[in-house]
Nucleic acid binder design. Structure first.
Lengths: 202, 202
DNA sequence: GGTGCCATGTAACGCGTTACATGATTAT
DNA sequence: ATAATCATGTAACGCGTTACATGGCACC
């Protein structure tokens, strides 16, 4: 929901063409480490921004290969950008796939049919923990091996990954103990009530 | 990238129709707290799954209102699900919008044109910290006020939010000190080299 | 002569959101 | 009466990914 805004921000620093924008965004946002954007998306987004009148072409340049279409912010683009700066970033959707998987595994244990395909929440948990631990190790090595002249963003990204990784690890421990508690006293699986043929009137 | 799988998982527990699936998924995944899915998406996803032969209709039921189309897993659906269980969840794209905004603000300070629209990284940081702190406070209150009979997932979600919130808060502190360091010794803004009209041959 | 970077895009698809449309049942 | 809940979907759009197509230039 916001490559648009980042592009506007970059263009507010100076006019650029698509390739430059892609490179600049990748450097700025941490690339594959944090927010990987493919060139194609830059061009399509740019086209949409142009159609909305937020950017405009500021002359093309030709030096050998294909044309370089340079873009610049319009007045409306500046307004939109100012609005973005004024807004706080909305706390993101976590969309934690592991959590869903875990809850599904728990539900399976409690209500699952007797298929061979067993799913053990404990095993899931341990696999996740092992993977995270290794990743954490790698990040730590990378952070400690960073050249001090490297950009500020690189350092901050590593520190962030480590901070959240450690938090997640501690949370996984917590999950395990909660799971042990529940195993002694299982809980109900949430279900939706349906209308037709009511079974138990409350 | 994975409501598909969650729906397959729920259907493996028992056959359901769309509305039930939506309710079950919302209960399971933590709803707006973690992964909000609109009913429309359930229906379209279900249609796609059916088209791919992973689910099939298992009879309709009519009791008053519209038809209830009950879905069940097919053999191929079971295979797909087994595959999902076997895979580890890939470490998610963080896509941290705040980070991008911050880096952009820093770049602006170092290279920005002298427009009136100033963007202060420090102010951004403090606003973010204030917001996060309040949210953290709310979560803590909610966790402590939770009825013990509430589902396991609710508790875990709160604990997770708190753990990561605290980590983020500590990271923001770290960012601030790094920013102070940099202010004394600024770094270069990363740029892409262009081809035409080379300025400085390295 | 090949590899890789610079530079541009289009086409097609999947996921997700918003808005719209319909209509019955149940609780206030 | 009317509001909420149950129940189903379609249409259109935005964001993001993958794959494809084109071609010059620089370096080994």
């Amino acid at each position: 929901m916001s490559l648009r805004n980042a592009l506007l921000g970059l263009l507010s620093l100076k006019a650029r063409h698509g390739y430059e924008l892609h490179a600049a965004f990748t450097a700025l946002a941490g690339g594959a480490e944090n927010w990987d954007v493919k060139p194609a998306q830059v061009y399509t987004t740019l086209a949409r921004l142009k159609e909305s009148g937020l950017v405009a072409e500021a002359g093309t340049e030709q030096s050998g290969g294909p044309e370089k279409r340079r873009y610049r912010l319009t007045k409306r683009g500046q307004g939109e950008l100012a609005h973005w700066w004024s807004r706080a970033v909305e706390p993101g959707h976590a969309r934690d796939e592991f959590f869903v998987k875990l809850m599904l595994a728990v539900a399976w244990v409690q209500a699952g049919p007797p298929g061979e395909t067993r799913v053990d929440p404990k095993a899931l948990l341990q696999a996740q923990r092992r993977g995270l631990f290794q990743e954490l190790h790698r990040w730590t090595l990378r952070r400690d091996g960073l050249d001090p002249s490297v950009s500020l963003g690189q350092i901050l990204l590593m520190e962030k990954a480590i901070a959240h990784g450690e938090a997640e690890l501690r949370w996984l421990d917590r999950v395990e103990s909660r799971l042990d508690e529940v195993r002694r006293q299982p809980v109900a699986v949430p279900e939706a009530r349906t209308r037709g043929r009511p079974k138990n009137p409350t």
